[in-house]
Design a binder for these strands. Sequence first.
RNA 1: GGGGACGUGGUGUAGCGGUUAACAUGCCACCCUGUCAAGGUGGAGAUCGCGGGUUCAAAUCCCGUCGUUCCCGCCA
Length: 552
Amino acid sequence: MCHQARMEYVLQVHGVVRRRPEGTDNPEMSTGTIDVVADRVEILNASKVPPFLINRDENIDELRRMQYRYLDLRRPNMQQNMILRHRTVKFLRDFLDGQGFIEIETPILFKTTPEGARDFLVPSRLQPGKFYALPQSPQQLKQLLMVAGYEKYFQVARCFRDEDLRGDRQPEFTQLDMELSFVEREDVMRLMEAMVLALCENVVPHMPLKYKPLRRLTYTEAMEAYGSDKPDLRYDLEAVDVTDIAGRSAFPIFQQNAEAGKPIKVVRAPGLHVRRDDPAQILSGEGLKRQMKELEDLVRTVGAKGLAYMALPLDETGEVKGPIGKYFTVEQKLALFERTGAQPGDILMFLSDKRETVWAAVDKLRRSLAETLNLADPNQLAFAWIIDFPMFYWDEENQRWDPSQHMFTMPMPEDIPLLDTDPGKARGSQYDLICNGYEIGGGSIRIHDRSLQEKMFPLIGQSMEHAREQFGHMLEAFEYGVPPHGGMAWGVDRLVMLFAQVDNIREVTAFPKTQSGLDVMAHAPSAAEPGQLEELYIRLAPLPEKGETAAP
RNA sequence: GGGGACGUGGUGUAGCGGUUAACAUGCCACCCUGUCAAGGUGGAGAUCGCGGGUUCAAAUCCCGUCGUUCCCGCCA
């Protein structure tokens, strides 16, 4: 009987558990000190030969893993991830419960929201020709719960956004959604910070926090130093502004850019000019060029036109390498080295373009260099707050202001007058929680004053009629005594991803979708039966031909 | 919508102009077995994602296409 049993069979064994005989213990195994002396063994269920090995840690093609997700989820790594996720959510629920929050479910079938991401639509049978939308988040509903007097609300909420997928973005994902009444920004941040610290201590005690209490950066500080509103703060690699020095060099592009008000920034890559296999030598000219070409290609992907550099020698007397060294006087070089803290063997990389492009390039460079130079400790958690976001970004295409979070975000009280004079300068009461290069959560104090709320619509290019159509229920509710309120939402998938030390949320999602939005196990989405469509009064338009642009 | 990487027995990889397409593991058979991802012997298993082209000759080079994935756009 035992001989018939194979891997993945489900067995029932009757017998006596006993201590293993002398000398047969195996300390490598969790059951290494015991035996079962079986008197009866029954095969409850046989198994086909699985398409991949369950009990081994191999790099199985992810498509295969998703096709047989129920087998993939048997693997120890995935089980640990699922348990970690459970423990995380359980801790957060318990914590909030202990703080007097109550969990309230909000509808999945709700109303389309005009701003933000693309909605998933669900056709209504009872209301032919009309559609529900799946919620992008419970934002409106939780504010209405504040109107309703539930002063501390939370929900582990599924959210839906029909946008292109990324490693950290699935079309459906989970938020820990929270809202509180009678709070100011500091109240929310203090509570959330306490929750982060307690969570990490309990769920991932082996992962040290870099900042306790959490570091705070303004949006502007983060962008100028790191080029991102969610920088990975486990390492430095700060961009340094050298517009004054480099703008006075003889390098024409820097001169022109400095004059045009475009910044010139330097990212210093420590020791990048040094051979990795022999720290006593610098890279060959060839090796240096190859490395810089790679990095230049990288920054080009975000619109930078090039990447100038100076590679420093190992001895103090040597000359810098790189195409722009000759345009700088000795004094200018010394000033650069002083400003950037340059050391022998470093490479200084220069980025100059319009501000946003420099930011994007700095972000790319930092992430890439951190990997090359192995600067990010996978065990460390660098949680931090980003605050003082601008209320609006200018939307060049539509010639209007776009809310940087959403249209219910309260401006910083002292910036309210700026809404009339200079909206671009107004800061929101928003706060983002970031960690290791990801946005983990975001929130704000909301507008609870109807007249202020009505001021927002024209600013973002919406007529009052349109606003009433879309948000009439909100505006009306706001006429019935709204407490000041604010809240936050955390991305549970990303949080668990960091805890599990993996680099995409599919690893912590039981049944994820591929980048093209497919469930390759169940084959969703799938065609609807004609009868189903008929019931919904839906007729399909002709589908675009696939591959019609084919050449020979 | 655009760009990059990848696609070779069941699985993971090697091969990158001419090889009977290699290795590991899994699978099948037999043997052995109280140190456990057991061991031994033997065996089956890949028209190299698909289509076209270049070439005397293509897994290998080129073009297209499909799929996965990373990035830009999009998304907070």
